[in-house]
């Protein structure tokens, strides 16, 4: 996957070859869906939000500066979509309660088709997901990008639009809170 290759795809889309966009969707769908899922804890929401992110990126493709990284730009759009969804949710207590029910219900949602996971592992995963969703939004974003999405600190900082030191601080603060959360559960 190269920047030049992506640039060519983007240029093709802008020339009107809409189908070329499928290559970009295929390339990043797992990451964007994963990001939305880790941020919301709900597969249905993740599906809607990831789709919205790709559609928004498509609609704004002409504004994308092709000298920059598409992947960072797409992540920024996806995070904005997720943030706006979560902010709406936080103002809607009924929806918020439903979401909490969903992510505490079990660990299987995110690991569909993985029956070999043992019970302990699934419980651990469920606790981790629950802990993650209790983190403040900015801290959760940093942890998800750094560890679930495996971005470097530099990439995390670029996507979040913050300095490198601020990104590191958010990530470590998030880990600390997760540790406390997990210690409280055991």
């Amino acid at each position: 996957m190269t920047g030049g290759d992506e640039r060519q795809i983007i240029e093709a889309v802008l020339r009107g070859e809409r189908a070329a966009y499928a290559v970009l969707v295929d390339r990043y769908k797992d990451r964007i869906f994963g990001l939305a899922y880790r941020m919301t804890g709900c597969r249905a929401d993740a599906d809607d939000l990831a789709q919205e992110a790709f559609l928004r990126a498509y609609g704004n493709l002409a504004r994308f500066d092709r000298e920059k990284s598409f992947f960072t730009w797409l992540y920024t759009i996806a995070l904005n979509v997720v943030r706006s969804h979560l902010n709406k949710r936080s103002r809607d207590p009924v929806a918020g309660a439903e979401e909490l029910m969903e992510h505490t219900r079990g660990a299987g949602d995110g690991a569909e088709g993985n029956p070999e996971d043992d019970l302990a592992g699934r419980e651990e995963e469920a606790l981790l997901r629950k802990g993650l969703l209790t983190l403040p939004l900015d801290t959760r974003e940093a942890v998800v990008l750094r560890f679930y999405q495996d971005l470097s600190f530099e990439e995390t900082a670029a996507v979040l639009g913050i300095s490198l030191s601020a990104a590191k601080m958010r990530v470590y603060r998030g880990l600390e809170k997760l540790r406390e959360c997990l210690a409280g559960e055991y």
Partner: peptide
């Protein structure tokens, strides 16, 4: 870090099969 280890060992999230098709 045990928390990082747990995160890294978390099962990957599976994207719905028809995801790209629906967007397109």
């Amino acid at each position: 870090d045990p928390v990082v280890r747990m995160i890294r060992e978390a099962p990957p999230v599976k994207t719905p099969d028809d995801f790209t098709g629906r967007i397109m």
